[in-house]
């Protein structure tokens, strides 16, 4: 007796091959879509963690410089270099919104991130609070924020 496989003719085998190919491609495309998503998610996570690290270091540096100087303009100058920053507010409350790249470099042309720094005077005199928040350049979602301070008794107002 001949086995059912052997009894399949050459043309039938070809048909089987093409059918298998179609089924394999169908499953493979589904599996690939899932796997591709996993790779894309990994890549996004990897970039996000690098960006979070940079934001955290940038905020730390800003907090340390501000703690030393108590001045927003000096903090900005030391952190991002001499540029014309749009600092708004009065002598008790100042804020600035900086466009940054993902590497946390100042870039008015390419704002992938925004770093918002707000400084306000607190009681007693000489105590200043700085609020730093990073937001996404496209949707404005808050990504990271810290609160820092400076106590400089001789300094009455923010600058």
């Amino acid at each position: 007796m001949r086995s059912p496989m052997k009894s399949v003719s050459a043309g039938g085998k070809l048909n089987l091959f093409f059918m298998e190919m179609i089924i394999v491609l169908f499953f493979f495309s589904i599996a690939s879509a899932v796997i591709l998503n996993a790779f894309a998610a990994s890549d996004r996570l990897s970039r996000e963690s690098g960006r979070l690290e940079r934001m955290s270091f940038c905020a730390q540096s800003a907090a340390e410089i501000f703690s030393q100087t108590g001045s927003l303009s000096e903090t900005l100058e030391k952190l991002f270099g001499s540029n014309s920053y749009d600092i708004r507010g009065d002598e008790y409350d100042l804020q600035v919104r900086l466009p940054l790249t993902e590497e946390c470099a100042y870039s008015p042309e390419n704002a992938e991130l925004y770093m918002i720094m707000a400084v306000e005077s607190e009681e007693p005199e000489g105590l200043f609070k700085m609020y730093i928040v990073f937001t996404d350049g496209s949707d404005g979602e808050a990504l990271y924020d810290i609160m820092a301070g400076a106590y400089l008794p001789g300094k009455g107002t923010v600058s």
Binding site: A41, L45, S46, E48, S49, G50, A59, Y144, M147
Partner: peptide, 24 residues
Amino acid sequence: SFSAAENGRRFSVRSADYTAEYYA
């Protein structure tokens, strides 16, 4: 890949949170 990226993200989040806690 996902495991490496997730580990990196967890480490970054923890470090960034610590920085925020320290300055607070």
